[in-house]
């Protein structure tokens, strides 16, 4: 696995990739493209660590330390000494503010 950007934890092993194109499909940031039957990282710095590519890659060619990029959640988590989310912590904003705007969330 090779880290692709200093700004995030995305790592990719081209040797394992089967070129199925799933990562291209699920990535909301257009980080990957498919070229000659293989995934290529073209926008490494844009990864937001959502984890969709790792979770859906059939060849385990991608890893990423995924989590929610939410400062309130992390600060709350730190103050209340609970684990930073992931999954466990729900801060008040989670039910509304975030992205429920727009048709982003179908």
């Amino acid at each position: 696995m090779q880290r692709v950007s200093p700004l995030n934890s995305l790592a990719f092993d081209p040797g394992l990739c089967s070129g199925c194109g799933t990562c291209v499909e699920v990535c909301p940031q257009g980080v990957f493209i498919l070229q000659d039957q293989a995934a290529v990282v073209t926008r490494p710095d844009d990864c937001i660590e959502c984890g969709a590519c790792e979770l859906n890659c059939p060849s385990a060619a991608i890893t990423v330390d995924s989590g929610v990029g939410c400062a309130s959640a992390m600060i709350w988590g730190a103050l209340s000494r609970r684990k930073v989310p992931g999954a466990s912590l729900v801060v008040p904003c989670c039910t509304t503010s975030t992205l429920d705007g727009s048709a982003e969330c179908t």
Binding site: L7, P28, C47, I48, E49, S66, G69, C70
Partner: peptide
């Protein structure tokens, strides 16, 4: 502004953690 990260689809956890460590 830092708190607004959670309302966006463009912030990564590594990025936000970096901002917290650096700026808080």
């Amino acid at each position: 502004s830092l708190n607004f990260t959670g309302s966006t689809p463009v912030a990564s956890r590594t990025g936000v953690r970096y901002e917290i460590d650096r700026y808080v």
